[in-house]
Design a protein around this nucleic acid. Structure first.
Lengths: 205, 205, 205, 205
DNA sequence: TATGAATGAGGTTTCATTCAT
DNA sequence: TATGAATGAAACCTCATTCAT
């Protein structure tokens, strides 16, 4: 007898999140007022505060739920590939897709980080996420080095740079018109792979 | 109230800018109040508004004056190098230094872009700046291809990815502890150059 | 949902009253929210409103039920005493005990009077109660004067002052640490009785 | 050049206090809103918060400034009297006048105590004030005992009861119509003095 | 130029009460 | 009877901006 009740609650919860996300995307976090979300959701202000403790809490929930929807199985496909080269390509494709899908959300995420009253905490969330990807990437490169696919490099460092490129591109997409992420990604990963596969260790000064 | 009036004015101006910068870096733009800046500067509220029209105006001024200090002759050194390889390395070094010096200012710049009531306008400033660098980079790569230093690649795309990596790293530096930008940059540019110099055109699928 | 429905109802009723009393004593009426009472009682908000019309109604009910428990037979013992002196002592003892038992409830009663939307009405309840005691006291003093135990005084006035002292002490008990009401009462009633029994009518200016 | 400015500030300060007091007396503390005080004072809400940190702070200031106006030289006159009897009479007169002048403020003071978020702190203010008076009273009685005016009693206890009577009467005055504080005080102090001066120590059981 | 008191629109949050289930 | 999600008026407070001195 309570199932329909708690389902209704979950629906309202979701409705608020979506209304908030819509407002945040439209006006940014700081310029969105609780009244905006009230108007967008068609609910009452009391209901917002029944479901979320504060505006900051709502922001965090929007961020978390939105972010969870992204890049969930970005990594999961990788296991299906055999060579490190193929795995790296798969990662690149995943990252490119991710960056592309981020369009419109990027500034929201940045603002989330900047505006949150728990900036440190938010930094941690991001760092944890980043580090996870960075470790997978570094492991792939390491694997390639081990099995002779790649020449020896500082896998850790290259992994950071690799990831950074995709996040940078996601940002650029917000204000560079007609940027072609897929093509850029293609060129980028080709060049990196060529570099890794070259037998020239003599490039360094 | 005497001879050096305009000099005193300039000093006050500067004092306000520095106080505002300190506050913005500490608390972000939105969380900084005019009273914070009053307290930080030791001046009065009226004086702030005598020198700057509004809080947004002050942000713009802080942004502009701070930004001017950055990356002034990042590009200028390049002409002293002869080969495209050396030029690319110089660009990488300049970008790494720039990203490193951005530490602490990065979120402010982002917030400037996000919070500004003239978001479109700001986007343009950034786009222009970015494009300028991107064109220089693409030209260098193009030059390398022309004179046989590099194998043929999509120079435009690679230039974007290259720049994006450094901006991404500048962001990471804000919340990844102990990240070594110089080392990462070194590994990155080495790998890219190896890739560009390799005679393998067979990597592409 | 069965036979003892009305008993269960009475139990819930009582449970709410006790939870409300606990909250009121802890935080005062105004600072107590219905949610506090919900938490304290372990019941639901709807149930509270099923049993009581409003927060004010609940306060009235708490006040009434609590007040009924106090000073029920404070006066009733008096008839067992023969002399006015003994009767006055008995009244003093009753008043002292009452004041002592009031500890912790005093501010609640005051707040009930102050916060009630029916302040006038509440004033009457209290006035009636007070006057009742005052009349009994005055009658005792009058009786003492009649039968020669006491010298002539303004019985009405003395009765007011006498009662006032005990109410004042009840208040003091709330914020004067280690006040000994019994001892104070003893000294007080002794002095008053000495004054009443003295044959000196020459003290007045 | 700043004297007129700071004088104007003090005037505004005072104006707010008086407006707040008027509102509090009319509606009680809890039912008074900042908007009420805005309307009553003719000032703006910002000005209220420029002068006082919070509603609670304003309440405290109103309380303090109002209380200071009361009973300032209630004690000071005492030194002009020679005998303990005369001093006690003077105290009684001062207390009666004080209680009388408290009419209309009493419930406000009580509400201040009850509603304050710093109830403990407020208790201290009152306790300190009370204890001060109690000590003076006890000293007078002690003095009377020493010089033979009074018979030996527990001066401490009697002082508490004496004070309590006047505070109780101040409360009664709020809801007992036509109570004659001066007359009651007269009868009360006469009886107490008679009791103190009587040579009968045999009253105790 | 400089000051700081004054302004008030607008923001977040609270909480007594209602009502569908 | 009981539940707890939903309501919304109303409260407190903030803060960019103005202006008399």
């Amino acid at each position: 007898m309570s199932s329909s009740g708690s389902q209704a609650k979950a629906e309202t919860h979701e409705r608020i999140l979506q209304a908030a996300l819509a407002c945040f995307k439209r006006k940014g976090y700081n310029h969105t007022t609780m009244d905006d979300i009230v108007a967008e959701s068609g609910l009452s202000k009391g209901t917002l505060y029944w479901h979320f403790e504060s505006k900051d809490d709502l922001l965090t929930a929007v961020f978390t739920s939105t972010f969870e929807a992204f890049g969930e199985d970005a990594i999961s496909d990788i296991i299906y590939h055999e060579t490190a080269t193929e795995k790296l390509r798969a990662m690149a494709q995943g990252a490119a897709d991710f960056s592309e899908s981020l369009l419109g959300y990027f500034s929201l995420f940045i603002e989330f980080w900047i505006s949150s009253e728990r900036r440190e905490e938010t930094s941690h969330i991001w760092y944890d996420l980043l580090e996870q990807y960075q470790r997978v990437l570094a492991a792939i490169i390491e694997e390639g080095i081990q099995n002779g696919e790649f020449r020896p490099v500082d896998a850790e460092s290259l992994a950071w740079a690799f990831l950074a490129a995709y996040d940078g591109l996601a940002a650029y997409a917000e204000f560079v018109p007609d940027i072609d992420l897929q093509r850029i990604s293609q060129t980028f990963v080709d060049t990196i792979l060529d570099g890794l596969q070259s037998d020239a260790g003599k490039t360094k000064p």
